[in-house]
């Protein structure tokens, strides 16, 4: 690690001011310290936010839930309210990392975790995300884990997390404090960015902004599934993941909200897919149409070509399970 100055933030405003001046916020540290050891991240100052009062899970007046930025991933997944009302969130968290890591990792830190692109992780390789303008090693390199949707000619990295994919399907929001003391709420669906010409920016956080919490809307009911496909059955990042919240009514899909992980630079959402499914009778023809729509613009880069059929199959499997239909069922 490069030398750095260690500061402990006494309040959110101080954390924001230090971050605005160039300090890097650290909470669980499970991703940031890893990257600092590799000198992918070389902050001159670390601002420890662990003593800020952001560790509570609180009910909201509308029946929703507010999860503090510093709530550990373990505590969030174990919370009885989360397990009962938003099981998709608990499932997605439990699908990621290990118990040791989830005991340290936080809600805000998980949202802000960086890509696991091999070229981003290796300072000897070109990477427009780590060193803007240096090129992209993954485009013509080893790109098995890379994006098939929403990529640019500058960057084909993926957002690696599971939690945010569930939060996107559940239409959660990120509550953010600005350095001037004002607050804004950003839908998780709009929190992470596509790479475009500025892949160095993972999300819409502005300098000095501090995440305070994630808010969940009231429970939507229905069936909630998180299906993660990976190279081994535990402790691996997703190759494809599907988060689904589906409610059936009278043999039809009354409501469908889907999000996809490991396909793009952000948790991927396609409102057209949700619209196609909503109100329709479930069956393989409908599911195939949904997959066609989702993957319309999908582009493989060689090693990751398999992600296109894998996404299709995973989506169909999740929709069958969520709607209680069998292979071959037609509406």
């Amino acid at each position: 690690m490069r030398p750095f100055e260690y500061r402990r933030a006494e309040g959110v405003e101080q954390a924001g001011a230090l971050a605005l001046a160039g300090g890097r916020l650290i909470a669980g540290g499970t991703n940031l310290l890893d990257l600092m050891k590799l000198q992918v991240e070389t902050p001159a100052q670390l601002v420890d936010v662990n003593r800020l009062p952001l560790r509570e899970i609180e009910p909201l007046a509308d029946g929703g839930l507010r999860i503090g930025a510093l709530v550990s991933n373990s505590a969030c997944a174990a919370d009885p309210r989360v397990r009962a009302g938003w099981p998709l969130l608990a499932r997605a968290i439990l699908a990621g990392a290990t118990f040791q890591l989830r005991n340290k990792a936080t809600t805000a830190g998980n949202l802000c975790q960086r890509t696991r692109c091999h070229y981003f992780y290796n300072p000897d390789q070109p990477c427009n995300k780590r060193a803007p303008g240096s090129g992209c090693g993954a485009l013509g390199g080893f790109n098995r884990i890379h994006a098939i949707l929403g990529a640019s000619d500058q960057c084909i990295a993926t957002y690696p997390g599971d939690m945010a994919v569930a939060l996107a399907a559940l239409d959660a929001a990120v509550v953010i404090a600005a350095p001037d003391g004002s607050q804004r709420s950003v839908p998780v669906r709009g929190f992470h960015r596509l790479p475009g010409d500025t892949p160095e920016k993972d999300n819409v956080l502005e300098p000095g902004e501090v995440i305070l919490a994630v808010t969940l809307p009231p429970p939507a009911g229905g069936t909630q599934l998180y299906r993660k496909v990976r190279e081994r059955s535990s402790y691996a990042f997703a190759l494809v993941s599907v988060a689904a919240a589906v409610r059936m009514e009278g043999g039809r899909i009354a409501q469908a909200s889907l999000a996809f992980g490991a396909l793009a630079h952000r948790p991927w959402r396609d409102p057209r897919v949700d619209a196609l499914l909503t109100g329709a009778r479930p069956g393989d023809a409908l599911f195939a149409e949904a997959a066609d729509l989702l993957l319309e613009g999908a582009q493989g880069r060689g090693h990751n070509d398999f992600k296109i059929p894998l996404t299709r199959r995973t989506l169909v499997a999740v929709l069958r399970e969520a709607t209680g239909t069998q292979p071959g069922d037609q509406a």
Binding site: Y6, G29, L33, L46, D48, F99, Q100, L101, N103, K104
Partner: peptide, 13 residues
């Protein structure tokens, strides 16, 4: 009482 990876944590924290 909770298990963590001590390699990914700073003593100062």
């Amino acid at each position: 009482g909770q298990r963590i990876n001590s390699c990914l944590s700073l003593t100062l924290m």
